[in-house]
Nucleic acid binder design. Structure first.
Lengths: 361, 361
DNA sequence: GCCCGTGCGGAAACCGTATCCCATGGTTTC
DNA sequence: GAAACCATGGGATACGGTTTCCGCACGGGC
């Protein structure tokens, strides 16, 4: 009676167990399972029967160690419950699954420490790519931190992908997938201006956030293009949540300035703004027009349905994954600076029912 | 000049590189890093310096293989973008991160084949637990399939956790985390009935879905308790999306029967219903009352804010992870049938502004 | 001054799989 | 008929860690 391993004990069956029970060598089992080596029909049958009997699955860790293994992509974001992020994640995950890749998910809660810890954790896992989602605060420090991440991942044969974040300056091994944030805001503001609005309450988001800054710039440019003075006092910064939308509108209604339209930084902010207007007895869009940004499902679930900027979040996720997959298959040669490092997708205004020309007072 | 490995080549540094450069043995490096063995301060300093210099991280696959490794939990769901699922996922992920666990995510797209493939994939990964989210169709076949999954995972030292799904009959090694679905529906329907509504359009969801069935049963029981006949013709089955809510209401308004309130199966369905009512020129709640289920953020973003049933999704996620973590730490002894295999969390009605007593015609 | 206990570092045996290299037996070719 | 060849299967090794077992050096107590 051998000391090796009590048959039928807990824990999973190994390839050795299969080999032993089938009366073949370990190498043969491996070959049957991976199928990249000619084996006789007889051998295949014998092995597969034992595999089924033992309900054997290969150990992914061992396989990875030995060189094979399925590639894994890590998705890191602030918060899974954000609709926009969730759509990007869906895009990444879907594209990953399509080519047999695995997806890991981690949330940073907007904490640089946790971000660092997670990137390191992913590096340990030997992921093929780390996808970082969402806007960034504190630009200068951000650039340095990301550059470190990028080089560190690159050294480990992995790749940093920035989605919806500012791309990196200098010669940094990273891929950026972005959308025309400022252009979308420009178009959205133009839509309001061309409807005749001149007094627009602007809620771009948190002042330090890169996406908010871009959306504000786009709006400003539209005002300039229309020759309408852009009054800084009409801008209210704050987080991307409905409470901020509510409070900002509530306060503006109480303390001024007067406005005939609200340009919200996201659909969620617009939802809050809409509630505040209703609470004050104002009708949308008859009394006040309102527009959002992102085009998440919420936008079409509100009444009236929200005119907003469509951002192809899910496709950004797919594109991000495709980019790293291509890079990985395209050959190991570092193709620094080649186009494909920075992809920009278009945005467009989706016209629904939340905008009307301003009422003549 | 050794053939071993060209220093500075691509690929990550190994523990051997660190040992060599620090002039110590591999074992010492391992001991410094895992910290479960006394080492001198001098050694620690020397090793850590090289670790930083080389930007070394341990190889998680190798570590797992050797016995250690960070536990991983797999979250499998239909669709990441569903708000309710996302909250559960957040709960699981948060609790996992809290104890240093990793989270894998996969989406099944409601395809049993993909579910099977994913469960196998997770088994290969050696995950500590597989968490399956969401209601189930086709009860009898579901029971068999899950029982197989459960046993298969159990044999591999892993654990199946069902969240918001029917629990398994018989002696199956699985954990279920559920909420009082039927009770919530009972309370919600009672709320409408006690406000005086007698003609209620019921949109419970897809006829074959376990959650929809529970919500319908709860509503029925409430009608019985109030002595109000439950008219099957007032029930409209369909998917959990806003289009279904819209169409069902639109059609009922056109073809009858008459109703003074809508009992929607989810908040999203309620949002669609609300739109249809508005489109028909009816006011909510003055003309028609409406209630939802789930209490996702959407519920409080609609106007009027939706009265709905709060389901503690995020906590369910946390509870699910805690359950498997406890099981794993509590000792290997299979404690079949012990309480803790089936956890049920409470639900409660959240009263907002979408219900009024019916207008006297 | 010797002995023994203690503390720490090194060598080696695993973990489970993929793959390289070689052995074997039968078939083809000259 | 012998040599070369093909197809197939087995043994050994590498992957990058962790951990056990051992031995060495050092210091204190008698």
């Amino acid at each position: 009676m051998s000391q090796r391993k009590v048959s039928g004990d807990a824990g999973r069956a190994t390839i050795r167990d299969v080999a032993e029970q089938a009366g073949v060598s370990v190498a043969s089992v491996s070959r049957v399972l991976s199928g990249n080596y000619p084996v006789s029909e007889e051998l295949r049958r014998r092995v597969m029967k034992v595999v089924r009997d033992l309900d054997y699955v290969t150990n992914a860790h061992a396989r990875s160690l030995a060189g094979g293994g399925t590639p894994t992509v890590a998705i890191l974001m602030d918060n899974i419950t954000g609709a926009a992020f969730a759509h990007v994640a869906k895009g990444v995950e879907g594209a990953a699954t399509l080519r047999g890749w695995l997806s890991l998910v981690g949330t940073t809660g907007n904490d640089p420490e946790r971000e660092l810890a997670l990137v390191n954790l992913m590096r340990q896992q030997g992921v093929a790519a780390v996808v970082l989602l969402g806007g960034a605060y504190d630009q200068d420090e951000y650039q340095l931190r990301m550059a470190r991440f990028a080089r560190s991942l690159d050294a480990a044969g992995s790749r940093l992908v920035l989605v919806g974040r500012p791309s990196l300056e200098g010669d940094v091994p990273a891929t950026t997938v972005d959308y025309d944030n400022e252009g979308g805001a420009y178009a959205m503001a133009s839509h309001l201006l061309s409807a005749g609005h001149r007094q627009v309450l602007v809620l771009p988001g948190h002042a330090g956030l890169s996406t908010a800054q871009g959306r504000l710039r786009g709006a400003q440019r539209a005002f300039e293009a229309y020759g309408v003075p852009f009054v800084p006092g009409m801008v209210r910064h704050g987080p991307y949540d409905d409470q901020h939308g509510y409070r900002a509108v509530e306060q503006a209604l109480r303390d001024g300035p007067a406005f005939t339209a609200v340009l919200a930084g996201t659909d969620v902010v617009a939802a809050g703004a809409m509630q505040a207007l209703r609470a004050a007895g104002l009708r949308v869009p008859e009394d006040v027009s309102i527009v959002g940004y992102d085009d998440i499902p919420l936008a079409s679930q509100l009444t009236p349905q929200l005119t907003t900027v469509h951002v192809p979040y899910e496709e950004m996720g797919r594109v991000a994954l495709r980019a790293v997959a291509d890079l990985r298959e395209g050959g190991g040669g570092r193709r620094k600076g080649i186009d494909g490092d920075h992809l920009v997708l278009g945005t467009h205004v989706v016209v629904r029912n939340s905008v009307r020309p301003p009422a003549r007072p």
